[in-house]
Simulated assay, not measured.
Amino acid sequence: MNFPERFANLPAYAFPRLRALLDHHKPGGDVVHMTIGEPKQKFPQWVTDVIVENAAGFNSYPPNDGSDELRAAISGWISRRYGVEMDPATQIMALNGTREGLYNAAMALCPEQKNGQKPAILIPNPFYQVYMVASLSVGAEPVFVSATAETGHLPDYENLPPDVLDRTSIAYICSPANPQGAVASRDYWQRLIRLAEKHDFRIFADECYSEIYRETAPVGALTVAQEMGANPERVVLFNSLSKRSNLPGLRSGLIATGPENMKRLKQLRAYSGAPLPGPLQAAAARVWADEAHVVENRALYQEKYQVADAVFAGLEGYMPPEAGFFLWLPVADGEAAALKLWQETGVRVLPGAYLAQGAAGENPGTGYIRVALVTSAEETRVALTALRRCLYD
């Protein structure tokens, strides 16, 4: 039996690789999970009430693109957060989590050829793994661009060869960055948008960590594109309630872009989409419309930033994250460090190499571990203190 060759060289996904690395060894203490970006802080108590109140909706097929109420709530949030007005009917679609959208948007919007050649899709390296699989699925060439300390932990797409840029169809960018916590500045977005206009490609702006930050809200791609008067089809925004509202299981994501892009996105989703159940859409609408719980949630993360800064004070190479909830900690070898930490302390972290692709014989994640600040502030303090003693002191 034959199988598609385009997926033949995919590495094992990060978390099965981690289990293979660690699970046949005993933990050296009480287990603390700091691997996956799965928030453990409380979500609003009233979410369950809204689902129950709308439970009769389980008896009906849900609106594929999102209910009018949900799309209106998302539009209102984009207006408040980014200062951009978007038509709920023609520029916004609800997603079953952003991973679905980040994949299917490439399916809907990447052409078979660009300037008579195989299209290229630009990917920051390290990266969220769906970017690579989406590129392979549409027959494009994934071009991995290292996001290192030298580039401010964001990819420098401007220095790619002109022939690569001329056949680029899509550029993925994650800001705040997963895993480094770096934030794209207004100048960075301006330069990227100008580059996209010059070489005629779309920017897929993955801003799922945008509501977790230290002091200043990260500027969004839509805001800058509007300020520049860019074509509304140029930027495709993705966000969700998973991090913003501690609701990864609700699977409420959004995609927002120009009306021509949206026509093609909706057409594909009519055939292949898996919409949120109606009661969950009702709950999501309420959550997108509420900001008080987001402010409270952000304060808890800000407390954990302070904990991390105190624990790693004076540590050479420690980079306080600007936003998001990951630490990107330098080590000699990420796999060896993760295994040592597990065997000696029971703290479980992710080797950085599992989030990156080797390019020119080098993997830019090899010398790092990713640590998710998803437990309580006190648990975080204890775990990070054990981590520092084990790996650095």
Results as ranks from 00 to 15, higher is better:
A310L: 12
A289Q: 11
L95N: 05
A372P: 00
C110D: 05
D163E: 15
G29Y: 04
K304F: 09
S135C: 15
L195R: 01
Y157G: 03
D309P: 01
L265R: 01
D87T: 08
Y209P: 00
F325W: 10
P88N: 12
A105L: 09
L192V: 05
R286I: 06
T148N: 03
K198I: 10
D187N: 12
K26A: 15
R389I: 08
G314Q: 05
E211F: 14
R244M: 14
D290Q: 15
S60P: 00
E378G: 04
L247S: 02
R234W: 01
S137D: 14
A134Y: 06
N297M: 12
D65M: 15
A282E: 12
M107W: 12
Y368K: 06
S245N: 12
W77L: 10
V371Y: 11
P320D: 04
A140D: 06
A94G: 12
V307A: 04
N2Q: 12
I123K: 00
L387H: 01
Q267S: 11
S169F: 03
P126F: 04
Y13M: 14
V311Y: 07
P126L: 11
S376M: 08
Q180V: 05
K266P: 00
H153M: 14
A184M: 11
P63Q: 01
K198W: 03
E69F: 12
G66N: 01
E233F: 02
G334H: 08
R80D: 13
H153K: 05
G365N: 06
A270F: 08
L160Q: 01
A270S: 13
Q302R: 15
T380V: 03
Q343A: 12
R167F: 09
E112Q: 15
K42M: 11
G229C: 11
G220Y: 00
G273V: 09
G352A: 09
A308V: 09
G101I: 07
A108S: 07
G97S: 05
P321C: 06
R214D: 08
R214L: 03
V164D: 01
G139V: 07
P275K: 07
L136Y: 10
S240R: 03
C390I: 10
V32N: 01
T385E: 14
G181H: 07
L276N: 01
T345L: 11
L21I: 10
P320T: 07
L250Y: 05
R99C: 06
A284S: 13
G83S: 07
R389N: 09
A292H: 10
D187S: 14
S135T: 15
R202H: 13
T168E: 02
D87Y: 04
H153T: 02
E207I: 05
R370H: 06
N246P: 00
V52L: 14
